[in-house]
Amino acid sequence: MEIEIWTEKYRPKDFDEVVGQDEIVARLKEMTKSKNIPHLLFAGPPGTGKTTLALIIAKKLFKDRWKENLLELNASDERGIDTIRTKVKDFARTKPIGEVPFKIILLDEADALTRDAQQALRRTMENFTSTARFILSCNYSSKIIEPIQSRCAIFRFKPLSKEAIKKYLARIAEAEKLKLSDEALEALYEVSEGDARKAVNTLQACASLSSKINEDIVYEVAGYAKPKEIMEVLKLSLDGKFEEAKKNMISTMIKYGISGIDAIKMIQRNVMNLNLPDEIKIKLLETIGEYEFRIVEGADEFLQIEALLAQFYLIGRSLKR
């Protein structure tokens, strides 16, 4: 049995394989047929098909030479707008291979660029319009400056419906010879929140345990994505068991491979569900923000999280008085 990452193995390769986003798919299909596309802006939450459709467009336009005609860039990873510009320039300088008169530049997470960087990007887009089309993707289109928005055809992606997720998972289950109970399928959708990548990753993790998948397994895997230990650690600190809390926090971070930033995000989300007076919650959230900032500034993540737990410990004690 060949194992790889299922999100790649089962990534739709044609418009007809895409689940959900029906209108968007229909429009893009027409555009692609005409072999002429404008600059595109895909906006929407993760796991809703933005990258998948961009790849399909490239495959359909360039057939087996799609790789040479597509430049994939990621705004959050590239070191600033200058490297992006250099890469775009190098790529767009040469003529496209084949009958389509332009190449495609896919810029993922474009909303990670600052406004200044986006201005620079706008000029780059204009300079290379004759030889390249941009497909920008982002979570929120409001974070993209208007001059760029106005140069693009905008498509808004929505979280996938229950039907779409189920259909997609059922297809994979069949190919992988998995037995999925209805409850498990239901649970997978719940956990995924309409994010197909998350649904597939959860399914693959479940399948590593057993080919018969029930809802318990699904929730067990989900615990890895949102460890409930974090909540327990917070309760321990508030309860005055600081040393235990500190130890559990470190082992939780290591067990799940949670970075300091991710851990602090989880803490922040959990605070709202704690049984505390609202004024205390606000105070804690302010403190959490301060420690998140310290980590972002490059401080040691374990130490910062421990120090944050000490603050929980302090507040817990003051509440008891």
Partner: peptide
């Protein structure tokens, strides 16, 4: 391999990898 940013890839795939490496 997965057409995601390095920034976010562990957030998307980490839990799945952790689970599989632990159990299978």
């Amino acid at each position: 391999k997965c057409h995601t940013s390095s920034e976010n890839s562990y957030k998307y795939y980490g839990f799945m990898l952790k689970f599989i490496f632990k159990h299978n």
